[in-house]
Amino acid sequence: MHSYIDLLTVGASVGGLRWPDMLVQLFFFIVLLALVKKFAWGPLMNKMEEREQYVANEIEEAEKSRADAEKASKDAAEQLNQVRAEAQKMIEDAKSAGIKQEEQIIESARKEAERIKEAAQADIQNEKERAIQALQDKVASLSVLIASKVIEKELSEQDQEKLINEYIKEVGEER
């Protein structure tokens, strides 16, 4: 209890307006403020501001490059589509050209065949006619010859037959 009362008196003595204390405190505080402002807070705040700037720049740059990339990819997609369409068109063109050519070839082949066939038929006809003509001529002359021979020799029926056969054979061989 005694010490407690002592303490209270110490507490009372703590008060009192000691202005030199104030001046000392003010002096130290202001000096401290000036020093740490110059050596600690100044550089620290500068650095933080610099970093803020840097981060802002980086973000801006990143956004810019992202936009660029987006644009590029869009361009690429567009180009790809264009190329694809072109390729499709080329294929279709080629297909239709192929079909057309095929038809042409078939058509011309058919025509050629037709022509060849007609020519062959004409040849055959010609030849046949010529052969018939030749045969007719031969038969006529032969019959005249046979008739004259028959008449000349007054051949027996047997001989006549033999002669005719002979001539006919002759004609056949000649042919």
């Binding site: 009192g16 000691r18 202005w19 030199p20 204390d21 000392v24 405190q25 130290f28 505080f29 000096v31 401290l32 020093l35 740490v36 050596f39 600690a40 807070w41 550089p43 620290l44």
Partner: peptide, 27 residues
């Protein structure tokens, strides 16, 4: 009437010194 508490003088100086050294060391 100009009474100076030397303890305050000492302690404000020490505190200022600690703060100064700490802050400058930290930054």
């Amino acid at each position: 009437g100009a009474d100076l508490n030397l303890s305050n003088l000492l302690m404000t100086f020490i505190v200022s010194l600690i703060v100064f050294v700490f802050c400058v060391w930290g930054s």
